[in-house]
Amino acid sequence: MDTQSREAFEIKWLLEAIYACYGYDFRDYAGASLKRRILNRLELSDCRHISDMVSKMLYDSDFFELFLQDMSITVTEMFRDPYVFLQLRERVIPRLKTYSRINIWHAGCATGEEVYSLAILLHEEGLLEKTRIYATDFNNHSLEIARKGIYSQDLAKYQDNYLLGGGKKALSEYYQYNYDAVIMKAFLRKRITFAYHNLTRDQVFAEMHLIMCRNVLIYFNQALQNKVLNLLINSLVHKGFLVLGDKETLEFTSMTHQFDDFEPRAKIYRKTAALPKANQDED
């Protein structure tokens, strides 16, 4: 057995242990990023091999918590991909305005920078007060940061993003300085419900008019992507919107026929009336 097959076996074993012990299922995650995260944790631990991490994982829940945090650390910023926010503002908001109550689901909100970006946008367009945003993640530690809305970094560096996303004020109007940190203003937080939800395991919980699920599916293999997309489409109202990461695409999934390319560049999709399977090939 060569090193690589050995490692592959160890990783499989580790993921089984995590699933059995904590119920988190990473077995259908795409392998490349997962392996790098496991190897990074190995290097930071006192373990010699990935297989040594198995028993540590089974008997030390703090070690699992560390791993869970590893799994949710990503590059994030406010108004990341401003073009997407501009398109939301100019093309999606006018359609949401027709509803008397609006439900938005931010699936995989991590530490919340993007969900606050969305709340700011809704506020500026006069929709925040009739909107409930559900911001969910599988990591309670990240959710806690998001819920508090306290960030250690200076958010002023996102002013350019904000303006490119169609913002007309100063981003600093939406937060207050608090020693070395900044805290998002309470009226934004009030409209957001932060809650635990695991996309790989949990179910539909409300009817949504808009779902933001950006750069989440890229971590899943094809089968899990299809499963989660099914969950998302079942959560959307007729003609509801789905926003993916700006380099993501439904092109290689089994879901293309259930969505229209509403704004292809911003990866904004719109749920179509579901066609019976037999008719798909005719057009």
């Binding site: 490349a32 990023s33 995260r37 650390i73 890229i218 293999n221 290689f252």
Partner: peptide, 21 residues
Amino acid sequence: PAGYHLQLELSGKLSLSVDLP
């Protein structure tokens, strides 16, 4: 793409990630 890691999966497909730099 700018801002994404480019990876090749064992399946032979391309994947992207927004893991830390």
